[in-house]
């Protein structure tokens, strides 16, 4: 079984309000994205709120188009684009946050989407990744951010998945994830 299926299998039975950390190698990056945005979201019929700080949303969108992944139910909170450099196209599916240090603004955009999108449809928040946010933020403020955001998602019955890239991680980041997540899933190449 490939990584996509493995991730899907390990996530498909999780209950609502779960907060899951996925620890993966950078090689598995696009497989994880595929498992979340395509497999899980279709299986559970979810809107995905994709918080990206690793790559600009446009790059992720290009990859998704290349992989033929439908994007109708994917909404980006983009803090991976330099706002000054991108011409912000009017696109209801991408909301920009000026800088990955504006963690409150990430929460505000997520809140905006939660109110804007069909309330009857389930939601999954995908944070890609804790490591790229950790470049710009202290771990204490990042932990506080995750704590507030994830609890808010829990209270709304949404699923939360946080990605941690092993090569960019540290013991401190791993401990922070343990604090805020219900479960950690180790994504191995040779599952």
């Amino acid at each position: 079984m490939g990584v996509v299926e493995k991730v899907f299998e390990s996530l498909k039975e999780i209950p609502e309000s779960s907060v899951i950390a996925l620890e993966a190698n950078s090689d598995a990056y696009f497989d994880v994205i595929r498992a979340i945005t395509e497999k899980i979201s279709i299986y559970k019929n979810l809107d995905v709120i994709y918080i990206n700080s690793t790559l600009p949303a446009n790059s992720i969108i290009s990859v998704m188009d290349l992989l033929d992944i439908k994007r109708d139910n994917i909404y980006f909170v983009d803090c991976g684009s330099s706002v000054l450099l991108t011409q912000q196209t009017k696109n209801g599916h991408v909301l920009f946050v000026e800088s990955p240090t504006m963690l409150e603004n990430i929460m505000l955009k997520v809140e905006f989407l939660l109110r804007k999108l069909d309330r009857k449809k389930g939601k999954l928040v995908f944070l890609d990744s804790i490591n790229s946010l950790a470049i710009h933020n202290s771990l204490s403020i990042l932990s506080e951010f995750m704590h507030i955001l994830f609890n808010n998602m829990r209270s709304k019955g949404a699923y939360t998945v946080v990605l941690s890239i092993k090569e960019q991680s540290s013991d401190d980041i791993s401990r922070a994830l343990t604090m805020v997540c219900d479960e950690k899933i180790d994504v191995k190449e040779e599952w």
């Binding site: 409150e104 505000l108 109110r115 933020n137 204490s140 403020i141 506080e144 951010f145 507030i148």
Partner: peptide
Amino acid sequence: LLVPMLKGG
């Protein structure tokens, strides 16, 4: 819309 301001230690 309002969210709590982070203190960040």
